[in-house]
């Protein structure tokens, strides 16, 4: 066991540290672009899921169920090989951005749907009764209230998304996990996999841990605020019907 984490192995990892740098940058780039895509998809699909139009709700539902109930790896392979064999290959990183964005878009959609549905029906009705149309209702009244409910689980989704960039490994990506693999079999770098995976893990950790913490702090604040509101309505007259 001691050999696994030998001084030589650590030296090797340090010597070829730019391998991590490149992988880390690719992972961050892929993650950042995929987060953007997943948010756009999530907002559109989440709004569709809460709209009155049955056809829009249907489309959103099917999307979410199909994406959530098939593995991400399958979706990545499907997209990559389908594009490659039809001669429309767009490269590994764009494929990764697209497939991971589409995958997490489904989860973002559910987060946003839940955030909108958590707002009491009376808020929608008050806005409609004042003469706000759909956009005004959402923009001024519903979303400002939903955002506090949406943010914590959304940040958790971002954390999951960052970790899921590791799936690019299957199509030979240049992400952090794929790069780390060089320390398993690489001609000059091979054999140093133990420290390499530790370093790789640490890099994920330093990005994901603060985000997770941020999400739980937000969530805690939200719960505290809710308790405060309940206390203010101590007479128990704010019950929803």
């Amino acid at each position: 066991m001691a050999g696994l984490l030998s001084k030589d192995a650590w030296i090797k990892v340090w010597t070829y540290r730019n391998t991590f740098e490149m992988g880390f940058l690719n992972t961050l780039l892929t993650a950042a672009a995929a987060v953007l895509l997943s948010m756009v998809l999530g907002i559109v699909l989440g709004l569709m899921a809460t709209s009155g139009k049955i056809i829009l709700r249907g489309i959103s539902r099917v999307y979410v169920e199909v994406i959530q109930n098939t593995p991400l790896l399958l979706q990545i392979c499907f997209l990559y090989y389908a594009l490659a064999f039809s001669g429309k290959s767009i490269g590994i990183i764009p494929t990764g951005i697209l497939s991971i964005g589409i995958y997490h878009g489904a989860y973002m959609a559910e987060v946003i749907r839940a955030g909108i549905e958590a707002i009491p029906k009376g808020q929608f009705e008050a806005a409609s009764s004042q003469g706000f149309g759909y956009i005004g209702r959402m923009y001024y009244i519903i979303l400002p209230q939903s955002i506090k409910i949406i943010l914590p689980p959304m940040v958790n989704q971002v954390v999951n998304l960052i970790k899921n960039t590791s799936c690019l490994y299957i199509i030979g990506g240049a992400d952090l996990i794929s790069q780390t693999y060089n320390f398993v079999t690489g001609a000059s770098t091979g054999g140093a996999y133990a420290p390499a995976y530790i370093v790789s893990g640490l890099l994920f950790f330093v990005i994901c841990f603060p985000l997770s913490k941020l999400a739980s702090v937000w969530e805690l604040n939200l719960k505290r605020r809710d308790r405060r509101v309940q206390k203010n309505n101590g007479e128990g007259r704010m019950m929803e019907v």
């Binding site: 009491p120 009705e125 009764s129 004042q130 009244i141 019907v241």
Partner: peptide, 11 residues
């Protein structure tokens, strides 16, 4: 305009 049972002010 409408006034509701549950007030429905914007919190």
């Amino acid at each position: 305009s409408m006034v509701f049972q549950q007030f429905n002010l914007y919190p």
